[in-house]
Measured scan of single mutants.
Amino acid sequence: AEKTGIVNVSSSLNVREGASTSSKVIGSLSGNTKVTIVGEEGAFYKIEYKGSHGYVAKEYIKDIKDE
């Protein structure tokens, strides 16, 4: 049951290796980017990222929809 969301930041949002603010940053997404959410862990969504997965803070994702 995948969902999509939109990155809701003015600059960019860090994509992390794990569901923690201390996890390594593996990339970033600019505002209004559409993401595919494959799961959630605590305050983070697990998303599809560059052929693999990454984690982003839930508070910066809006317009969550079921695909």
Rank of each mutant, 00 (worst) to 15 (best):
R16E: 01
S28T: 14
E48F: 09
D63T: 12
G5E: 02
S22T: 12
N14K: 14
G42D: 10
G54N: 01
G54I: 01
V35F: 03
E2Q: 13
T21C: 07
G39M: 05
E67V: 15
N32M: 13
E2F: 07
L13V: 12
V15K: 00
T36A: 08
I47F: 01
N8T: 13
L29S: 01
Y45S: 01
E67D: 12
K3E: 04
E48R: 13
S52A: 15
E40K: 04
E59I: 15
K46M: 10
H53Y: 11
I64Q: 06
E41I: 13
I26L: 11
Y55F: 13
K65E: 13
G39F: 04
V35Q: 01
V35W: 02
I47T: 01
G51L: 08
S12A: 10
G5F: 03
K50R: 11
K65N: 14
I6R: 10
S52T: 12
G31A: 15
E2S: 11
A43D: 12
F44S: 03
K34V: 14
T21P: 14
T21K: 14
I26R: 03
K50S: 08
A43T: 10
D66P: 11
Y55G: 00
S30V: 12
I47V: 06
E67R: 07
A57Y: 12
V7I: 10
E67K: 13
V15F: 02
A1S: 15
R16P: 00
A57L: 13
D66C: 07
K34T: 13
Y49E: 01
V38D: 02
A1K: 06
G18K: 12
G18A: 12
S52Y: 09
T4S: 12
F44A: 03
T33N: 06
V9Y: 04
G51Q: 14
A19W: 05
T33C: 06
R16S: 07
K3D: 03
I6S: 05
K58H: 03
E48I: 12
G31R: 15
A43Y: 08
V56A: 04
L29D: 00
E17Q: 11
D63C: 07
A43C: 07
S22P: 03
V15H: 00
K34G: 04
G42L: 06
R16W: 15
K3S: 07
N8K: 14
G54V: 03
K50P: 02
E40S: 07
A43W: 07
V15G: 00
L29F: 04
E41M: 11
I37K: 01
K34S: 07
E41F: 15
K46I: 14
S20K: 07
I64L: 10
K62E: 09
V25M: 06
L29G: 00
S52I: 10
V56G: 01
S22D: 14
S12G: 11
E48Y: 14
Y55V: 00
E41G: 03
N8G: 10
T4N: 07
Y60F: 11
N14G: 08
G31Y: 14
G54W: 02
S28R: 11
K50T: 05
N8C: 08
Y49V: 03
N32A: 10
N32P: 05
Y60C: 06
I6V: 12
Y45R: 01
T21E: 12
I47C: 01
K24T: 08
A1C: 07
S52E: 10
I6L: 08
I6P: 02
E40A: 07
E40Y: 05
T33K: 05
G54M: 03
K62Q: 12
N8R: 11
I64T: 08
K34W: 07
G27P: 00
T4A: 06
T36Y: 14
S11I: 12
L29K: 01
E17P: 01
K65C: 06
K58F: 03
E48T: 11
E59Y: 10
V25R: 05
E48K: 13
G51H: 09
S22W: 08
Y45L: 06
Y49A: 01
S28P: 04
G54H: 02
G51T: 08
T33A: 15
A19E: 02
E40N: 05
E59R: 14
T4E: 11
Y60P: 02
V9M: 08
S30L: 12
A19S: 10
E67Y: 03
D63P: 10
G54P: 01
G18C: 09
K3N: 04
V25K: 06
I64H: 07
G42W: 04
V7N: 02
G42Y: 06
I37Y: 01
S23L: 03
G5M: 05
K65S: 14
S22Y: 09
T33W: 07
S23F: 06
N32D: 11
V9A: 12
A57K: 15
K46C: 05
K46L: 11
A57H: 09
D63L: 14
S22C: 07
I64M: 08
I37C: 02
V9E: 07
I47M: 02
G31Q: 10
G31I: 09
S30H: 12
G27A: 04
I61H: 01
D63G: 10
S20H: 11
K50G: 14
S10R: 09
G39K: 04
G18L: 11
K65F: 08
E41L: 09
S30A: 14
S52G: 14
Y49H: 04
K62Y: 13
V35E: 00
I37R: 01
S23H: 10
S23I: 02
Y49I: 03
E40D: 08
Y60T: 05
S23K: 04
K34H: 09
K58W: 03
V35A: 02
K62F: 10
S22L: 11
E41Y: 09
N32V: 05
R16N: 10
I6D: 02
K50E: 15
E59Q: 12
K3M: 08
I47L: 02
I47Y: 00
